[in-house]
Design a protein around this nucleic acid. Structure first.
Lengths: 215, 215, 215, 215
DNA sequence: AATGAATGAGCATTCATTCAT
DNA sequence: CATGAATGAATGCTCATTCAT
């Protein structure tokens, strides 16, 4: 689901062939191929063909195969983490209410099939592209866990949540979501029975919250 | 931590140098290289060198690169799932006691760094090797979840655990373990703060059991 | 130093911007790039950029890369050989006087840095472009040697120069000039101490003429 | 005429296929192709084919195309410069006698067709491979000129040779040899009438020595 | 006339696989 | 069994040339 950063977009919208659409199409095609094959096994020929351009055209917009890969992975970073953060920070109600609104929202985001495939790529290629793993960690994973951790820590201060490392609490709450997404990308395509993510998270919250809340 | 399947073990046990150790060494070396680079980016040269044999020697024991990869991944399958199963089936006590003994045991297994790296490989290469993903699902993931699900279902029948899809309950319990392992393999090497898995699971069980248990 | 052959000069001399200057600029730019990189390693992109035109514009004036190369090399052919020839033919004085005026003139021409670079190109690409080597031989090298040879032969007839193959005598006289030019283009840029060509030729004439002249 | 430096030559001379002959064959084939086409236009396919090996085999002995090129050019450096130097240093007789023995020897070396072709390559590629030009300058050109310059300077000290920059005198003596070699490699293949180098140098010495010698 | 996006053939380089020794 | 030299198909990348605008 990567939305490519803007190309060197010029002004006149009918004169140049379609230059400013190309990078987006390439990144989309590359996203498909990379998420199917991984970085090394992906062939530039395939990406070009799927993007409907020649192999040489790729090099009008990207310097190397790795650049294309990075564009794919980075374009999937941004999307809605910021939205969640502002939502959380402005939320006035009690912890339970916040969590019960926040988790479905995160589930929704994770459900956009794009993110799951990109995460799979990041995991699989983290050995070869540590820089990408770092970016994903810093901008997505750590940030997401951090938001949740902050929410929990503040709730603990207010006495709403029991003691315990808030970062571990955060994973305790969110892990089924991550696990289900990876499961969907990895094993469902080979016949595994999928998890219904909203139901899963609903039931999970009903499990954890009694233990977490002080009441 | 793959333990290689038996070599073409011949009869006379003192005649050839140490032939029946070779496949094990190769698989171990291959495990290291594959888990660092992934399948496509791994070079047979590296595997041979790390195994201390010539490149040609690999073909005395395996037909193709893919065969080596499959040996690595399959050898990591077997280890202790069976042990857990028999342990679980013979366990006489109540659900909470079983879970509090079982989860640390699973955590231990997962902690053997081998499994985590293999899971990472399975995830990353699932697109290129669906058969491997299927094997891992059937023999490890589904089996593990299945054991847990069975335990939960039986506890529900005995009235020890509240209603709800037992498979979802299973993931609710086990997911932090999976998430932490993947996190360790993917993000800790690029600087992320690791999760202490035993503590994590301890705290998680304290969170989740109050909601799950009926009493 | 190439002066481009006439462009497709149209009639109306104020209507198009400056079209008839373009080929000259292109050839000049191409001359620079070719003499730095050689034919194969020269990139049309570079030539276009240095000429201040688009890559496509090159094809308005030349059919192929090879055409541009040939234009560069041929444009450097013409320059002053003819002038020398007429000067020589009309010269009334004795051989020594003629040579002592003629050699500095040739040195001057050779000193125009252009010729040296082109000769280097001709030498380097003679295997790939025999036609160009032939043209340069016929129009420059052989002609130059031929003029000198004629001068010597006539001087021999008049008894001013000792016996011996006049063509070998010609090379005996002129070779240091050629060697110094090639040396300058090839080795001076990598740190070699240059030869001062006028001094060299002065000293060289003082060496050879005593042996050549009869008196 | 490049003689490749010794390969990683092992001891047992019948066991390994023919490993220690290969680099020499490759360098010889590469020498032919490079001297015909220049560096950029030479195709590794051609070199491999002419060497009777596969393209991949080239990379068993050389890292890159450039490495092969450098091997070709460097292998042609060594040959007999050293021999001349020791000959010169130990020569007891007068300058004229030394020169009349030394020049034919240099002509002979230059006549080994190898050197001429390599010089052509060095000239043509000096822009792209300054390092190679530098090596050739330092190890061949400058050394050769240097030996001659030394000889002349010493003769001047002994009063055998007239005043004048000995380095210019050196070029005055040797240039026709260089010019003739380049001429042979560049223009003779396209139909130019060759110079007979021994005769040329004989006649040239007869021209130049009267002016150089004092008596 | 002029542009520059697009093409596609061409080439250096890599690497799984084979096989003579 | 074991080696490692040799192969050749595969692929990333380049660049002369074309052509819609």
């Amino acid at each position: 689901m990567p939305t490519p950063s803007a190309p060197p977009s010029s002004g006149s919208p009918k004169w140049r062939r379609r230059a400013e659409a190309r990078p987006a199409e390439i990144v989309r095609a590359a996203y498909e191929v990379f998420s199917e094959k991984g970085f090394a096994a992906a062939r530039l020929d395939d990406i070009a063909q799927r993007a409907g351009v020649s192999k040489g055209a790729l090099y009008l917009y990207f310097e190397t195969k790795q650049d294309i890969f990075e564009a794919v992975v980075k374009d999937a970073v941004a999307p809605n983490i910021g939205a969640i953060e502002t939502f959380v920070l402005g939320f006035p109600g009690p912890f339970e209410q916040l969590i019960r609104m926040m988790i479905p929202r995160m589930a929704e985001i994770a459900n956009q099939s794009g993110l799951g495939k990109v995460i799979k790529m990041v995991i699989g290629e983290s050995g070869n592209f540590p820089e990408i793993a770092r970016i994903w960690h810093d901008d997505v994973i750590a940030k997401g866990i951090g938001i949740l951790t902050g929410v929990i820590a503040r709730a603990q201060e207010r006495g709403e949540v029991r003691a315990g490392d808030p970062r571990l609490h955060a994973l305790s709450i969110a892990a089924p979501l991550l696990a289900a997404v990876i499961f969907r990308e990895t094993f469902v395509p080979v016949g595994a029975k999928p998890f219904d993510i909203p139901t899963l998270m609903q039931q999970h919250l009903d499990n954890v919250l009694p233990g977490l809340l002080t009441s």
